[in-house]
Design a binder for these strands. Sequence first.
DNA 1: CGTCTTTGACCGGCGC
DNA 2: GCGCCGGTCAAAGACG
Length: 332
Amino acid sequence: MANSTFITPPPPPTTASDIDQMPGVFAFSTAAPPPPINSIFDMMPCDIIGGDQKAGSLGFMDLLDISQDFGTASSLLDWFAQNPIPGSQQQQTFVPSPAPTLPETSEVLNNPATPNSSASISSSSNEAGNDAFQQVKTGDQEEEQDHHKTKKQLKPKKKNQKRQREPRFAFMTKSEVDHLDDGYRWRKYGQKAVKNSPYPRSYYRCTSAGCGVKKRVERSSDDPSIVVTTYEGQHIHPSPITPRGSIGILADPTGFGAATSSFVIPQPQYQQQHSYMYNSSPSLNITSSSASFRPAFSFHQGRSDSPASLLRDHGLLQDIVPFKMRKEPKEE
DNA sequence: CGTCTTTGACCGGCGC
DNA sequence: GCGCCGGTCAAAGACG
C-alpha cells in the first residue's frame, strides 16, 4: 500500500529533467493551512479495489484518457479541479502564461509553496502521439522477425523518422514506495542511474497488448521521500483492475470515459496548500473559485466556451464524483 | 510454466 | 566527429 502524498518539493523539481524545462506555464496555487494531505493516490480507491491490490490507486491513468480530448496538460489539472479539498479555505492564483507558445509540449508543474503538502504535476504532449509510437514499435517487431541478429546488430530503428513523444504527465508524490499502483499493470523494462542522484530511474510499460503507455519512476535526490512519476501515452483500454463490481468502468457516454469511471474519492479530511504550475495549453481554460480549489477549464475539446457550465458546482462531492460513484461506500 | 525483474549493452539525440 | 546521456532491448534469472 502506497503511503503516498502529493507533495511539492522545493524547486527545482529534482532530477526530473523534463519537468523543469517548461516555458510558459499556468501557475495556480491554493493557499491553505498545510496539514498533511491525501494524495491523488490517496484519494483513489485504494481500499475499494480489493484486498489483493497493493497500492490500489485506480484510475489515475484514466486521467490520461481524458487528456486526449484537448491535450494532456489540462486533464490532470482537471482532475484536481474536480476534486477539491473540502473544508479548506483555498485561494487560487492563476497565472496565465504570457506566451502560451508550446505547440507540442505542455507540462504542468507545481510551484511549491509548502513542501510536503502539495502536488506536482507535469505533462508534455506531442500531437503525433500514439500513431508514431506504434509505428516505431511495429517497425522494431518486424525487424526482429526478419533477422535473428545479435543484440548489437538489432534495433535498426527508423532513422529518418524522428521519434515522437507521447503526451506526458509528471507528478511528484510523497511515497515510501517507488512504484505506485495506479490500477494498471506495468512491466519494468529498464532501470538507469540518474545523474546527480543516488536513486535510479525505473522504466515501466503497460502490459496490456497494444497499449504503449509508459511511465518512469524516480526518486528525488533532494528529498528521497518524493517519487517523481512520469506517465507517457494514453491507455487504449480500461484499467484491468476494477473496483468491486467494476463500477464505472463501463464506457461513459458523457465522454469522460474511464476518466471518471474508476475512482471514488473519499472525502479528504485535510486542508492543504496547493501550488501547481500548469503549462499553458491552447484549450486550457482556467478560472478560479474563491470558495474552493476548483479551477475550471474545458474538459472536452472545443468546449471551453463556458467552463463554468461544466462545473455544476454545488460544493459537494457530487460535483467531483459521478453519481454512480458516489453510491460507492466510502468507509473503505 | 508464465510472468516479472534485473542488468549490461545498444541506439539515437544532442551538445561541444 | 566524438562523447555523453536518456531511453530501450532482451537474455538471464527470480518468483509464485
